[in-house]
Design a protein around this nucleic acid. Structure first.
Lengths: 96, 96
DNA sequence: TCAGTATATTGATTATTGTCAATATTTGCG
DNA sequence: CGCAAATATTGACAATAATCAATATACTGA
């Protein structure tokens, strides 16, 4: 069944050890070259590219080209979306 | 690959449309009988039981028996865990 | 204890997802 | 243009997860 609920898409994007590792790295920096993700998780270049695509389509990350490189960053909307889901699921206070 | 990261386990538990629907319902109430989840998602009783087990083992819900029924509730720790993950991934302010 | 109801488990099947090798595309530079 | 480097896509396969039918277990009340 293809997902339509954007929250399920977002959660699915994060629910993978490789992708969550990527996001954790991105949370610590202002932008990471796709080529630098290969250091962490012993997966192939196509697999890295695939995971980054999943994160991008879920709205977790954004990307910009710089020459032959592509720089990935956390999406500026991600924090707000996380907060909103937390508000609806656990009664947390959403970001205003 | 079996998951060990508890955050991946938590996110995986939520990253399913049926389970997220259950959690949304639980967020609106103080406790729901397992038998009452059958109304929403047109899945069989064993499937409901399976999904509730996934949520329980991930720490999202807790359960208590009341007679032949089992009442499920959101785990009291869930909000804090959500908040902590948001803090680490998106720089959100964690619950104190 | 027995019958009835609710929930859980087992086993099998199907659907989805992660992974890689091979290849294509994009970009910068002589 | 032609080459090299970085990233993306395709196609195939393996691993994982969702689902159900059948069955087992737990509890209540007669």
């Amino acid at each position: 069944m293809k997902q339509i609920d954007p929250d399920v898409i977002l959660l699915s994007a994060l629910a993978d050890p490789v992708r969550l590792s990527f996001v954790r790295q991105l949370a610590e920096s202002d932008g990471i070259c796709a080529c630098d993700f290969s250091e962490c998780c012993s997966v192939s270049q196509p697999t890295i590219s695939h995971h980054l695509k999943v994160l991008r389509e879920a709205g977790v990350v954004t990307s910009v080209r710089q020459g032959t490189n592509v720089i990935y960053s956390l999406s500026p909307e991600f924090g707000r979306r996380w907060s909103a889901i937390g508000a609806s699921l656990a009664g947390l206070v959403p970001i205003s």
